[in-house]
Design a protein around this nucleic acid. Structure first.
Lengths: 339, 339
DNA sequence: CGGCTCCCTGCATACGTTTGCAAACATTCA
DNA sequence: TGAATGTTTGCAAACGTATGCAGGGAGCCG
């Protein structure tokens, strides 16, 4: 059995061929059947494994995908990470994870680090990028896909759920449920996701001649959402329904309503979230929410990214995936409501 | 401004020195102050950044740490990942994430992939490794630290909380609370963590002349824990307290007790978990649990790993960190109980 | 049988760094 | 002033792979 490192040269010697031949066998270039057999056999005997770093040096592209993510306390993102990583592993790629606070400089620094590693592509989740930065990635030949966030500007790919439609759907649902004073604790206004859901929701209400009691920015943060709930319920006009910009905040809203204010959900107030993270289905919350189809979003993200990696000319695309409203116990269900 | 790629050679030319000089400046080797200045200036002007892959080729060690993790649905692990990644980023390292089901072959495959990337070290979380495999890593000069899991065999480092002591502490607490029929839904028996907590718990009971009503393996799984709860409560001897092997399962136990069986926690049954993930503090669960000091565990993990990386001779160590019992509303608090 | 094409193959170079070696230089001390 | 010592520096050889190029062989057709 072999010592330390075994290289393509060792394999070549043992197989009685040149190093190039070994390289060609393992990089899928053409080689005669006999050569392939000889090389494979020698390689197996020696326990040879191609060195991906050396390969990356030559080709300029490593088999790594950079994943930039701001935080993992919202259950949605760990799951996305898990699925993304699995899907990419299946395709022979590996995930280099970077945490980056959601500010411009930090993201820029992180992306530079990623470019140093010659990643084949970048996925950002819950993180924004300036158009300037995405342009520089494009110049470097590194495709970028934004996951669960969009960008108005130029040619950057993104995969989101149909947030505007989702917001509108929830408006429709709450109105049908007979709610009269509906409030919205929105996602962070600095994110397309938060803005789109809010817009769809307000448009949905307006289409039926209503408007929200108020819209408060919850910044996707538990504490802020909890405080927003207190403020909201302290007002004189009794709010009877709250659409919360994501599940993570919705849990805080429910905790505040029930635990702190002694209100009943949905008897006193209906609560609807967005995401359908696993926790939403657990009995303690049983949250009615609009599902983001995680599996399909991950699939679309991987497809788009790998597509752009193998075919640099492929144009960027903005993919929106519709998700269903999941009816549970946190919001009154309109009579005769069919999914 | 520079085009495409700028290498150390470009910098060398502009600074009027040799390429080696540039390398020495950036790798921290000795160089005269004037050379350093000339090189730094030229580098900045050109926007030079050393290529970490080329460096890894030569040195045999990349600035990447492999992180192997089985699943991310237990909130504890995403948080650990987040903290680990941040701590390592601060030290100039980056995290290569691999998902691996907890079986021997899969882990072996994944570790080989990691070795191909010449990672400087490996952290496994919620994943076991055979002694044979850790030996091969050691042979390859790659230190391994197991996070939240131990290993009986030889020289492998691990960082866990003091699971035996924690289990015993919970036994003490539940007995002091006057519970008479105490059950344990244990963590996976295949994990040191699960075994140690169970052992400490049983020993703690025994020390006070009690023994558990029953011990069921919950496999760290929600569904299995829920079923265990049903089975448990269907028995004739009314269980009045359950110690659950981690919070993730404890939530399922509470959901089942309250939502499905209509029991009250803690009036009918006290529930105690293990981990103190953020969700445990949320009003909907308000779970009494033994805290694993995540920050200190992460710190110890990073210290140990980086220590072994910089000093290959450093012996492996098994670190146990004690955590406090966090009193909340899911278990009856003994009168006069002081932390 | 000659010429043509086509497929394999080996040679040599390139990728961007680190590092051993020896030459060059500066510094100290006798 | 000369030798001895220590510090910088450049040269060149690695690290392990991919790939353009040209030579060699096989096959086909006339």
């Amino acid at each position: 059995m072999p010592e330390g490192k075994v290289t393509s040269l060792h394999v070549a010697r043992r197989a009685g061929v040149s190093q190039s031949a070994v390289s060609r066998v393992f990089s899928g270039a053409s080689a005669s059947p006999q050569t392939v057999i000889k090389v494979r056999k020698a390689a197996e005997h020696l326990g040879y494994r191609p060195n991906p770093l050396a390969r990356a040096m030559i080709t300029g592209k490593s088999k790594m995908i950079g994943l930039v993510v701001a935080y993992l306390n919202n259950q949605f993102y760990p799951l996305a990470l898990e699925r993304l990583s699995n899907a990419l592993q299946d395709q022979g790629y590996h995930v280099l994870v970077f945490m980056a606070p959601n500010d411009e400089d930090a993201v820029e620094k992180v992306v530079h680090d990623l470019m140093d590693y010659q990643v084949a592509g970048i996925i950002t989740a819950s993180v924004g990028m300036t158009n300037d930065l995405t342009q520089r990635c494009a110049d470097a030949g590194i495709p970028v896909v934004m996951f669960n966030r969009g960008q108005d500007g130029g040619g950057i790919s993104s995969v989101t759920s149909a947030n505007v439609a989702g917001g509108a759907r929830i408006a429709e649902f709450l109105i049908a449920g007979g709610h009269k004073r509906i409030a919205h604790i929105a996602g962070w206004e600095g994110s397309s996701t938060g803005r789109d859901r809010a817009r769809g929701f307000c448009e949905g209400l307006a289409a039926r001649g209503m408007e929200p009691v108020t819209v408060i920015d919850g910044h996707f943060d538990r504490e802020i959402a909890a405080q927003a709930t207190r403020d909201l319920m302290a007002r004189s006009d009794a709010t009877d329904a709250i659409f919360v910009g994501n599940d993570h905040m919705a849990f805080a809203v429910m905790d505040t309503l029930r635990g702190e204010l002694g209100l009943s959900v949905p008897k006193d107030v209906s609560v609807v979230g967005y995401d359908d993270v696993p926790l939403a289905a657990w009995a303690a919350y049983d949250l009615t929410t609009l599902r983001q189809p995680l599996n399909r979003m991950v699939e679309a993200t991987v497809d788009t990214l790998l597509g752009q990696i193998t075919d640099a000319a492929r144009p960027s695309q903005k993919i929106e995936i519709e998700g269903p409203l999941i009816l549970r116990g946190s919001a009154r269900i309109p009579e005769g409501w069919t999914q």
